[in-house]
Computed example of a mutant assay.
Amino acid sequence: MASSLKYTLHQYGAHELQRVGVWDLDIADKAKYWIIFIHGGAWRDPRVTHEAFAPSISRILDASTSSIAAFASIDYRLSPHPDFPQDPAETPETQLRVARHPDHLDDVRAALVFLQREFALGARYVLLGHSAGACLAYQFLATAPLSSTSRADDEGRVGDGETPHLPAAVLGIEGIYDMTGLNARVGGSYSGFLSAAFGAPGDWDRAAPMKFAGRYRDRFGGLAALAHSPDDELVDMPETEGMAERLRGDVGEGSLLVWKDLQGSHEGIVEDGSGVARLVLRILAILEDRAGS
């Protein structure tokens, strides 16, 4: 169980949501991988926090943990939610949920900088995100410097530009990658939360990982993975299929994994955690096999 591990909550910024939870399994072993999670919640749901990763951690602990050093889960500033209004006159600035792109992404990057400075994990981590978190994971790749400048020094620290190491692998689960396309397929019913997170619809494509104007392979040389459940009632399969097609023509078949065999509803995937655990362990096995070949 995740509760059996030493857990610490760290602040990487002044806002109360600029925090990252760390579960220590074997942090001292620098040869092992960190598993770092970015939660979903449509960029705005205050009920969804870094603790959403705990069931998946527990499922992973029930299986193999031989190559894992630690788990981390990132919280980030949120956009406004109409069901959870705040009065700006009475709410401290450090608690306001008024984030708009790229605030969420800036926070993910800052959290990774913090973790790499604090724990010197370098590039030995798997970055995974669910739903909006999957979008953030691939936005992180799309906005990374070109590969010649995207690494920190050999000891895992970051430079003055606060550029974190890129991960060994990225996994998007039930992700949102084309805001315009997804919203059109649901008859415009997602306009509210997408506009809260990204502004006017005319701005969405510039932030969409599927419509990234550059080439992922110019920034990222690791393993790219996508996963989806046919039972997902909130994000449809074409969203993952479209992102897979984009990556297939970019990073190539040899660096792309696509799984459509998850089982469960959109939120159920994370609430149960068993499917997430299987995916993480599959990726770790591939990384270890590549390292040994």
Results as ranks from 00 to 15, higher is better:
residue 146 L to P: 02
residue 145 P to S: 13
residue 144 A to H: 01
residue 188 G to P: 04
residue 130 H to I: 01
residue 113 V to R: 06
residue 155 E to C: 12
residue 180 T to R: 08
residue 136 L to E: 04
residue 124 R to T: 14
residue 125 Y to C: 10
residue 136 L to Y: 12
residue 165 H to V: 10
residue 171 L to R: 00
residue 143 T to S: 13
residue 152 A to I: 11
residue 174 E to T: 14
residue 172 G to E: 01
residue 184 A to D: 15
residue 144 A to Y: 07
residue 164 P to C: 11
residue 137 A to R: 04
residue 190 Y to V: 00
residue 122 G to L: 10
residue 131 S to F: 02
residue 158 V to A: 13
residue 201 P to D: 07
residue 179 M to Y: 08
residue 113 V to K: 05
residue 125 Y to K: 10
residue 199 G to I: 03
residue 149 T to E: 12
residue 179 M to K: 00
residue 147 S to P: 04
residue 161 G to H: 10
residue 164 P to W: 13
residue 123 A to N: 12
residue 181 G to C: 05
residue 193 F to K: 06
residue 131 S to V: 04
residue 186 V to E: 06
residue 159 G to F: 03
residue 184 A to E: 15
residue 132 A to L: 10
residue 142 A to D: 02
residue 131 S to Q: 02
residue 193 F to P: 13
residue 166 L to P: 01
residue 144 A to C: 06
residue 132 A to W: 01
residue 141 L to D: 00
residue 139 Q to S: 11
residue 166 L to C: 02
residue 136 L to C: 03
residue 162 E to L: 15
residue 156 G to F: 00
residue 134 A to Q: 04
residue 152 A to C: 14
residue 122 G to V: 04
residue 167 P to Y: 13
residue 201 P to V: 05
residue 145 P to F: 13
residue 190 Y to S: 06
residue 186 V to D: 02
residue 145 P to Q: 12
residue 194 L to F: 15
residue 177 Y to T: 11
residue 187 G to L: 01
residue 137 A to F: 14
residue 192 G to V: 08
residue 138 Y to L: 03
residue 140 F to R: 04
residue 163 T to Y: 05
residue 148 S to Q: 09
residue 154 D to H: 14
residue 202 G to D: 11
residue 124 R to H: 14
residue 201 P to R: 02
residue 137 A to P: 07
residue 146 L to E: 12
residue 164 P to V: 13
residue 139 Q to E: 05
residue 186 V to M: 10
residue 127 L to F: 12
residue 163 T to M: 09
residue 133 G to F: 09
residue 147 S to G: 05
residue 138 Y to A: 08
residue 144 A to M: 08
residue 181 G to I: 01
residue 196 A to R: 06
residue 161 G to Q: 14
residue 159 G to Q: 05
residue 142 A to I: 08
residue 146 L to A: 14
residue 156 G to M: 03
residue 144 A to R: 05
residue 146 L to Y: 11
residue 144 A to L: 04
residue 113 V to T: 09
residue 179 M to G: 11
residue 123 A to M: 01
residue 129 G to C: 05
residue 146 L to S: 14
residue 163 T to V: 15
residue 134 A to P: 09
